[in-house]
Every structure is written in C-alpha cells, then in structure tokens.
Simulated scan of single mutants.
Amino acid sequence: MVVHVGLLPLSSSCLPSLPRLPRLSSTKHRTFAMAVVSEDPVREWILSEGNATQITRISPVGGGCINRASHYDTDAGSFFVKTNRSIGPSMFEGEALGLGAMFETGTIRVPKPFKFGPLPTGGSYIIMEFIEFGSRRNNQSVLGRKLAEMHKAGKSEKGFGFEVNNTVGSTPQINTWSSDWIQFYGEHRLGYQLQLALDQYGDGTIYEKGQRLVKSMGPLFDNVVIEPCLLHGDLWSGNISSDKNGEPVILDPACYYGHSEAEFGMSWCAGFGGSFYSSYFEVMPKQPGFEKRKDLYLLYHYLNHYNLFGSGYRSSAMSIIDDYLRMLKA
C-alpha cells in the first residue's frame, strides 16, 4: 500500500551489536509488554535496553504520510523509529508482531522490531533495527526464492488469520482465525472491503456483484491444497528494497497467515518479473488454476485502493468482478 513509511537509505552503518539486544518472545505465544508511558519513552528505551549511553543525532526520514520516521544515531549503533501522534499502539503492535514473525523464519531480511508503546501526549511509537539500504535494486531471482522460503517456513496451526487485527495502508484488516480459507477470504478480505464501499460511497452495484462473486468463487479452488502461510500482506515496490550487500529487504507489513498466492495481490505495482516467479515456484510449486485465481487476489487491493483513494480504482475492481461472474456464470 503506497501510504506506508519505509526505511530509506542513509549514510550510517547498520547496528553491529544488534544480536546483543533482547529478542522478542516466540511467535506462537508472543505478547508484547508495552512500555510505561514516560516523558520520552523512545529515548528511555534506547539509553537502557538499547545499550546506548548517548544519542548523537536524530534525523528525520521521509517517504510516507501516515507516520513520522526518524533515524537515531547512538554510540551503540543506529535505530529506526516511527511515531504517530493520533493513532494508539494497536497499529504498531500489528507491525511489530508481523515483523517479528517474518524475522523468526530466518529467511528474507526484515527490520527486527524491539519495542512499541504509547506516547505521553497521545499516539504511539515503534523502535526497530535500522537497515542501511544499498544503491543497487533488489535481485528479483533472490527476492522470489527468499519470499517462497518465508512462505514455506512460516506456518500456523491456528489456521488462517493472525494474532491481532492490523491495517493494510490505513484500512483495518480483520484477522479472526478461521479453518476455511475461502470463508476467511470471502468474509474478512473481499466482504469487508465491499461493505466499506457500500458504507462510504453507497456503491450498491459493486457491493451486490461482489457478494455474488464471494458466494460463487469456491470452484476456483478445486484441487488446490491451501496451507496457512505467513504473508507480508502488502508487498508492493515501496515495501521492497535491498541492504548494502544487495540482499532483498521487505518492510511495512500487513501480515497474516493465508494462501500463499494472496501475496501477489499487489503485483500490479510491485514490478515482479519472470525471474522472480521462476525462483518462487521452484520453492513453492505452482498449483492448478493459479492463472484463474490471480485476479481474485488483485481484487482485494483494488477495492482497498478504491476505499482509500476514490473512484479512480473502481473500474479495475468492477472489471475483475464482472469477468469472474461471467466465468463462473453467477
């Protein structure tokens, strides 16, 4: 989603002592203890649990419009901090849990989260690893392989969903656990967005046709084995970069456990090429009917863009719905 803030390349090096910092607890049973609100909880954490004795510089980082981002230079290394003056800690809790879950797969590189909590004047913050980005573009082949390895390693015994609800862009994303992927995707992804379009724009046409699609899309999944895979959830070009060694880095997630193919829902602005898909499917083989399902996963993000940014995205969403209704004769 184009409104997320990313970690941008700066001149400082990565934190060499990161392994000494406290690890987050296990993904399966992770509960974050939010910091007690102090006058400056970010500074307090960096100068205690962050092992720094001095903050030498705080620099603003551009690139987003939801959160304020800063690079903290210290005598113990660098940290990346995001703050939001109007939204409570639940948004950053979702981000921290998502980053932590991806980090623990030991596959693709993500910024390691350290702490989130409330700000004393309202709003919230999150502290994470600072990654120095390189000048080279990400290697598509390596990106595809690493992403597939994350999907293969990140599994959930609870089914489809996530530990908490989170956001895709600024839109709430409902992650209530379900054992049925078709039901989960129909209700918590497409259905939720269709209801938003009805409530926000009074768009009864897209709501009615979209609901017909939700009720009839089952045959698109015939002969498909669907396992709950850990998804980044919002993988577009602005959330993909490379570190100074050229290794792919993904950030600003909207994580949940879902069908691996749903990860390609933002491919229309992710720039995935042939080498990306070839490497991905070497690790996660393509399943029957993949080409027929691709647009179903694009639809969720087109609907979200319609709800966030207006009518410019409506025609793309409507076209996908109409095509599926003709295909399914619904």
Results as ranks from 00 to 15, higher is better:
G64T: 05
P89S: 12
G88K: 13
T107K: 14
A69L: 01
E132H: 11
G94H: 00
P118I: 08
T83Q: 15
D73N: 08
M102K: 04
L119W: 08
E104K: 07
N84A: 08
G106R: 05
S70L: 12
I127P: 03
G62S: 13
M102Y: 04
R57S: 14
F79G: 05
R85L: 10
G106A: 11
N67R: 07
A69C: 11
F114Y: 15
G117Q: 01
P89E: 13
I131L: 15
I87P: 07
S90Y: 11
H71C: 10
S135E: 15
C65G: 09
M102V: 10
G62C: 05
D73G: 05
P120A: 11
S78Y: 10
A101R: 01
H71L: 15
P89F: 03
G123L: 08
A69V: 09
I66D: 05
S59K: 12
E95S: 00
H71P: 02
G122N: 10
I87R: 13
I58S: 01
P118R: 04
N139Q: 09
I126K: 09
Y72L: 03
K115P: 01
G77S: 06
R109M: 14
M102D: 06
P60G: 09
I66E: 06
P120R: 07
T107D: 03
P120Y: 05
Y125G: 03
S86T: 15
P60K: 14
E132T: 13
C65D: 12
T83S: 04
A96F: 12
T121A: 11
R57N: 14
F79I: 07
L99G: 04
G94I: 01
S70T: 15
S141E: 14
R109D: 09
E95W: 05
T74L: 09
P60R: 15
S141M: 11
S90M: 11
F130N: 00
K115W: 00
